[in-house]
Every structure is written in C-alpha cells, then in structure tokens.
C-alpha cells in the first residue's frame, strides 16, 4: 500500500548516543510527512540534533527507534536517487579530482555512456554557473564556488530527493544569498523534494514551503509553519513582505520562548 503523495514518511524517530556508559538522548519521537516536490526546512539552534536527523533520513545514521520510509520503502542504506550536500565543502569534495571529475563521481556506480555522462556534467555545471571551471581543481576555487561544485555533484544524477545539511553556513553573506536563489530555482524547475537543515530562520522561511522548528533536549518538533509565499521569490521583495516578517517574528518567539 504505497501512498504516492507521501514521498517521505518519518514515524516516531528517536536517536540516542551512548557515551561511556551513559545514554544521551538527542531526538525524541519525530514524525513528519513530506509530499513529492515539497521544500522543507528543518530549523533549530546549533547542536540540537538537526544534522543527526537529516543523516537518519539519508540512511547514514541508524535511528534508535522509529522509521524513515521513502516511497514506502524503509530507509536502511542511502536510497537511490538522492543528492546530499554538506556544510564543509573543503571536506566533501575530493581534492585530487578536478571539478568535472568531482561532479562525475556519482556516475561511478551507474552505467551511463561516456557521452551521456559528459553531457550531464556539462549541464549541471552550466546550471550552477561553473561551465568554464570544469578543468579546475577545488583548491583553485573560492569557497562559494566549491560549494557550487558540491551542489552540481548532488544534482548530476537527477535526484528525486535533495538533502542539504547547512549548505550555506561556510560561505559569506553575499554568496549565501546567491546560492539560496540558485538552489530555489533549480529545485522549483526540476520539482525535486528538498529538505534543508539550517539554523537561520530567515533562510528557512525564504526557501521552504514548510518550516519545521525542532527544539529542546531531547529535541522534538515544536512548531510547524506553512509558508504561503509566491514563487519565484526574491531576496529583496520576499524578505520585506509583511507575511515574511510576521512568520519570522513567530518563529523567533517560539525559539526564544523555549
């Protein structure tokens, strides 16, 4: 019995870590449904367990209890057709490969013709605005450009699901806005289901259809806000929209109230 509208189904997810005998509960009873093509932002203070949550969805961390299902299939290992971008581009890109080889990495486990691979790599590099930098090495690029490479790599297999773990936390403010728009446009165009983890409330509202606030220790879902702002959004207009400002105030209040 597969419910197609529910792309991702998270049920009573909990995680605790064992630390020299004592048990540290990080996440408690998180339940969440994400429908196909939806953009979800998971928001919370640093250290609250957001990264652990997204890693469990990605199949990289095993939950202590509860389940994650994608298209009705239980996630045990990283699912097919998923892209993943992490915060630290200096560690997620392979320094010994050029930009194009880094982007082509996901093809290593797939059977594609050489031509098809080449075309696809060119296409995603074009999409992130790095068409001229295919032959460069990561260390020759700025931080923002390296993160674009990481984004290109996550898109090269045309994923149905994109997971972003604080993807813009290591780049400076100006670049950050550019990358936000880049992601928003690509995801909108390709109708990719996206989950982003961020500690930045503004970023969460700006990008997402739904903002999930998690807080407390162990953390659970403390607030959900539907973001009904028109797309495509714009950094200047959307952010000064009264609705935007109101949601922001609400979220700040509940973040501080706890």
């Amino acid at each position: 019995m597969k419910d197609r509208s529910k792309h991702i189904e998270i049920l009573n997810l909990s995680k605790s870590f064992e630390n020299s005998g004592s048990e540290l509960k990080v996440l408690k009873n998180i339940s969440l449904d994400v429908s196909s093509g939806e953009f979800i932002a998971i928001c919370g203070r640093s250290g609250v367990g957001k990264s652990t949550l997204i890693r469990m969805i990605a199949g990289l961390v095993k939950p202590s209890s509860g389940t994650v299902a994608i298209d009705g299939d239980l996630v045990v290992n990283p699912p097919n057709s998923m892209g993943f971008v992490t915060q630290d581009y200096s560690r997620s890109l392979l320094p010994w490969f050029s930009v194009e080889k880094n982007v082509a990495l996901p093809f290593k486990a797939k059977n594609f013709s050489k031509l098809e691979k080449k075309r696809k790599v060119e296409e995603v590099l074009e999409a992130v605005g790095l068409a001229d930098f295919a032959k460069f090495y990561p260390w020759q690029l700025s931080g923002g450009m390296q993160q674009r490479v990481a984004i290109a790599r996550s898109l090269v297999l045309d994923p149905k699901l994109l997971l972003l773990d604080e993807p813009f936390a290591s780049v400076d403010a100006q670049i950050r806005l550019e990358l936000e728009d880049l992601i928003a446009n690509i995801v909108l165009q390709k109708k990719i289901t996206t989950i982003i983890v961020t500690h930045d409330i503004d970023e969460a509202i700006y990008l997402a259809d739904r903002v999930i606030l998690i807080s407390d220790s162990p953390a659970s879902v403390s607030k959900i806000i539907q973001v009904k702002l028109a797309r495509p959004r714009s950094q200047t207009e959307t952010r000064s929209d009264p609705k935007f400002v109101k949601m922001r105030t609400q979220l700040y209040a509940s973040l501080r109230g706890k």
Binding site: L60, N77, P78, M82, T86, R91, S92, L105, P106, A109
Partner: peptide
C-alpha cells in the same frame, strides 16, 4: 569521514 560517507551515498563499489 565525509569522503567515505559520499561513497556510501552514491553507492560506489568497493573497488571504485
């Protein structure tokens, strides 16, 4: 660790 994680995400074979 992140490199190993990425290999896992993209289902690289042991050889690759």
């Amino acid at each position: 660790m992140e490199h190993i994680e990425f290999a896992k995400i993209y289902h690289l074979s042991t050889f690759s």
